[in-house]
Amino acid sequence: MSRFTPENEQLAREIVARYPRPKSATIPLCHLAQEQDGYLADDAMTHIAELVGVTPAEVLGTASFYEMFKRKPIGKYLITVCTNISCQLLGGEELLEHAERTLGISSGSTTDDGLFTLEDVECIAACTEAPACQVNYRYQHRVSHDDFDQLVDDLREGRRDEVPAHGTLARVRQQLGADRIANITPPEAQDQPVWITRHEREAQSSGTAAGGGS
């Protein structure tokens, strides 16, 4: 739907400045756009392309490779159920079926009220806590069918503050404005670091082995 708001554009520029080459900011900016709109809109990709200096086709080429970017609006809560091996062994597939019944939708779709989207996903690194799922990438461990129903109720009633709407990942961002950056430039502008040079010189004058960097 939309390009970045002025505040987000400001933040986007700050993020671009964290990378030696602008294109590296493509994925972070796609996340920012998804945080803004809940999904990754075409116009947002065009704006990202301008900010990182590539074509929109290149942004889409990158974004479409990754599962988390949604090109159409989805539910406010994305529930992802792991069915990979460790979870499967302890009922992950049954949990998914239960979720489909509870929400009345099949995996990959969104409830009519636009509240929930359900997905069957690969291992989410909660294997010792099987079966596991996530809501907007917040973990739920060892989820029984009752736990799941409770979770859905809580979300419906707005009782899960720790879960922001889909699109928002981490709510704490790294603060790395221009005032903090020590030394981020394009690779061409970089040279041997000063501490390496100093240790090399010291090693030479004391006759021991050269510095680790050389």
């Binding site: 994925i27 490779f65 903090r180 020590a182 030394n183 000063v194």
Partner: peptide, 21 residues
Amino acid sequence: GRNILGTDFSVDIVLHWGAGA
């Protein structure tokens, strides 16, 4: 960051999020 613990050693650490792959 800059001049870590008062030395001539500086390094930036940038947190980067993946996106599912």
